[in-house]
Simulated scan of single mutants.
Amino acid sequence: MQIPIGVSNRHIHLTKEDVDKLFGDNYELTSKKELSQPGEFAAEETVTIKTDKSEIQGVRILGPIRPLTQVEISKTDARKLHINPPIRPSGKIDGTPGIKIIGPNGEITIDKGVIIAERHIHMTNADADSFGVKDGQYVSVKTAGERELTFNKVLIRVKDTYALDMHIDTDEANAAGLQTGDTGELIK
């Protein structure tokens, strides 16, 4: 019942239209590193996210292009930016704060789209059968080590194009003393 853990730093997903506004017409993102989920990558390109009170530079873009622009940050980042985004599953951006995004060739302001990503586990249908769980279910994951911790309310996300991986943000990883590649025990 062990689940590999991936630590997700702040990042942004962009639409094609927003990539063009930030980097120039017909711009193509450059893959820097493949991610745990098949077909996804960390791009070479970064942007600055900015509120009236603060900014964070060097926010990594994750590819490929998405149907909506979304910024995923930690609670620590939210405090620095003086905003209060909700904890949400990816893609659920209604009622979330917006932010200014600055690229090398332009800037945009989104009126919604900043979230703290809900911790979750990606898995295939075969994985779900093996673990006895289903899409949308919540489970717990117990970690080991000096800062042993049990994460409750971990969302199961099932799709056959996924690879087995639990995603937590940097605040959660630091609290439990975890890094990418560590594992946790799934508890139903």
Rank of each mutant, 00 (worst) to 15 (best):
A163V: 00
V141E: 10
K32V: 00
I87T: 11
R88W: 00
L62K: 03
G6H: 03
I108V: 13
P89C: 03
N84L: 04
E17A: 14
I99P: 11
Y162M: 03
P85F: 09
K159M: 06
I99L: 09
R147L: 12
E44W: 06
H13A: 00
P4Y: 10
T124C: 09
P104H: 08
V19L: 11
D127W: 09
D94M: 01
E172S: 02
A163N: 13
K21V: 02
L81D: 10
V7S: 05
H122L: 01
E45C: 05
L178Q: 09
G103E: 12
T170K: 07
R147P: 07
P104F: 07
I116G: 05
V158R: 14
I168Y: 12
K53I: 04
I61W: 06
T15W: 07
T143A: 08
K188L: 13
I56F: 04
G24E: 13
T30H: 14
I3H: 14
A42K: 03
D129A: 03
I87R: 15
E148V: 01
I83T: 07
S90M: 00
D20C: 05
L14C: 02
K50W: 14
L35E: 03
A117V: 01
H11A: 01
D129I: 01
P38I: 08
I102F: 11
S8G: 01
V158S: 10
I115A: 04
K53M: 09
I3Q: 11
G95R: 09
N9I: 02
V114F: 04
K75G: 06
E17K: 11
N105L: 08
I101L: 08
S54G: 08
E45V: 00
I49W: 11
E40K: 02
D94I: 02
L62I: 05
D18G: 02
K142F: 14
L81N: 11
K50I: 03
E44C: 02
Q70V: 01
D135Y: 11
L81R: 13
I156M: 14
I5A: 06
H13P: 00
E107M: 06
F41N: 00
P89D: 04
H167N: 00
V114N: 12
I187Q: 15
S130R: 15
P85D: 06
S140A: 10
E28V: 04
G91F: 05
E185L: 10
T183N: 12
E118K: 06
S130D: 11
L62E: 03
K142Y: 15
G184Q: 10
M1V: 08
T51D: 12
T180P: 04
L164K: 13
K92E: 08
K100G: 07
G184E: 09
G58D: 12
E55A: 06
R79S: 11
S31E: 10
M1E: 13
L68S: 05
P64F: 01
E34W: 04
E107F: 12
D127H: 13
Y138H: 14
F41K: 03
K159G: 06
I65R: 10
I83M: 13
M166V: 00
I156E: 13
T170M: 07
I101Y: 09
S54Q: 15
N26M: 01
P64W: 08
I93A: 01
P67G: 04
L29H: 02
L68G: 02
G98Y: 09
I101D: 13
L178I: 00
R79K: 15
D182N: 11
